[in-house]
């Protein structure tokens, strides 16, 4: 199958099944990475960061970026179109009777189950990122020492960022882009990439 058709179908599926906005597409992006190998988990994490720090809906930014990484500029257009096509179809269908839809008890009951499932899928994607960040698997494979497996500088940075993004009243209202930029500078200064 052509990569373009496959891209369109994978993103169509994400657009149809990701419920709860942009972040809900992340688990589908991990799934695509596992299935196709078009990009690695580490690359995906970088794409998420850039999508959060640039203008536009995060979900669309991620689709464009993943599409570009997988198949160049045509890929970015096709992935984005794939993601928005189900939305357009669904919304145009229900636009006529949206009050009936919103108050329907089956729709509300379905969301009772969908909300925790969607949160869990995003949490699972977050754990995949955390494994990359907390464990230094490449270094451990070379030295075999447990001390090298656990990435202590990253854990300290993680705890500090959690404090400033979620706890500290003065800084937690700041935009995500500010924290991402600060983390980039810290990464460069402390050579967190190890190069």
């Amino acid at each position: 199958m052509s990569i373009y058709i496959q891209l369109f179908l994978e993103f169509f599926k994400a657009g149809l099944f990701a419920v709860g906005g942009g972040m809900a597409t992340i688990p589908f992006l991990y799934d695509i990475s596992d299935k196709t190998g078009w990009y690695t988990h580490a690359q995906l994490t970088d794409m998420i960061a850039i999508s959060e720090s640039t203008p536009g809906p995060i979900g669309i930014n991620m689709a464009t970026y993943v599409g570009f990484t997988s198949a160049g500029i045509p890929g970015s257009v096709i992935a984005t179109l794939g993601l928005i096509t189900p939305s357009i179809i669904v919304i145009l269908i229900i636009a006529g009777f949206y009050n009936a839809f919103k108050n329907n008890k089956y729709v509300q009951a379905a969301f009772y189950g969908l909300r925790p499932a969607s949160s869990a899928l995003i949490a699972s994607a977050g754990l995949s990122v955390a494994v990359l960040v907390v464990l230094n698997q490449a270094k451990y494979a070379v030295t075999g020492s447990i001390m090298d497996l656990i990435n202590i500088p990253n854990i300290i940075l993680m705890l500090a960022l959690y404090y400033f993004t979620a706890k500290c009243k003065k800084t937690k209202g700041l935009h995500a882009a500010a924290f991402i930029a600060a983390s980039a500078v810290i990464g460069i200064v402390l050579k967190l990439g190890g190069v």
Partner: peptide
């Protein structure tokens, strides 16, 4: 590469906050 190593830590925290 070093910048993105730092950024990845941040993404991890941002995703965690979104889940919370």
């Amino acid at each position: 590469q070093n910048a993105f190593a730092g950024i990845r830590v941040c993404v991890c925290v941002l995703v965690f906050n979104a889940v919370m």
